[in-house]
Design a protein around this nucleic acid. Structure first.
Lengths: 131, 131
DNA sequence: CTATAATTTCGATAGTTTTCGAAGTAAGGG
DNA sequence: CCCTTACTTCGAAAACTATCGAAATTATAG
């Protein structure tokens, strides 16, 4: 095979994803594939200080507190956010490494140098994307 | 406020996503948030020539042809892939612009120069991510 | 034109997800 | 110590999704 290690493709389009890797990534993607959770993630990430109180989040939606709490739990279980109680309020913050992992999947590799390194590593693997 | 336009954040963590933008992006993410569709997308993208015949895809799964066809339709409806019939077979190819759009959402902005440009553009909008 | 092969559509069923209201837990104030 | 506020867990109803088998559609070959 000719070593045409072009930089055209996102990781997902470089090698067929293994069944296990696909299952693991699908869990992460399912967590963000919801309008409410996307907005929650965005509101938390863009909030001053990098963290937001649940009370702020709940007010921004026409949904009940239990529903917001459920969505936050989904994001938390997926490893995308982390919550901490300080006194009366619970504050959530984004875990950027995991968010980056998502982006890396679909973003074209920019440097052929990096491409050459990863090209020798075999099939696209989830650990490869772990920061 | 000091103009600390740092390059720390992915677009999703820069400004709260609007309700409309979140709904539109969730549709796209829902399409890829499935192990079978992730693998289909990956197989199509990494196939020689940039396109794959449905017959190749069907053989790689323990699923029936109608089920594969259903998943391909979901990806097609989301705008992630495009299919073309040539003779007996239908060939699918990735639409890279839309895949990039997904990646851009979660990938940290690298250049502060670009960050300064987008920072003046107002709230994070879907068109901003359209290539 | 008929036969064959590939793909899509249709209808049904099982499983999952979203959402709510009610009840439970935790922290702080009178 | 009880009461209020903030958040989470529980249990259930409604809506959606994945999957299958059977039937319909489309293109090529003879």
């Amino acid at each position: 095979m000719t070593a045409v290690t072009s930089q055209c493709c996102a990781p997902i389009a470089r090698e067929p994803l293994s069944e296990d890797a696909a299952a693991e990534l699908a869990l992460l993607l399912k967590a963000v594939a919801d309008p409410v959770r996307l907005r929650l993630l965005s509101m938390i990430g863009s909030h001053a200080g990098g963290e937001a109180c649940v009370c702020d989040l709940t007010d921004a939606f026409d949904l009940t507190a239990p529903t917001i709490s459920h969505h936050l739990k989904v994001l938390r279980t997926a490893g995308l956010i982390d919550g901490e109680r300080r006194g009366t309020w619970v504050y959530y913050r984004i875990i950027p490494e995991v968010v980056n992992k998502l982006g890396a999947l679909f973003t074209p590799l920019a440097q052929p140098a990096t491409a050459a390194t990863t090209a020798s590593g075999g099939p696209v693997d989830v650990e490869l994307l772990t920061v």
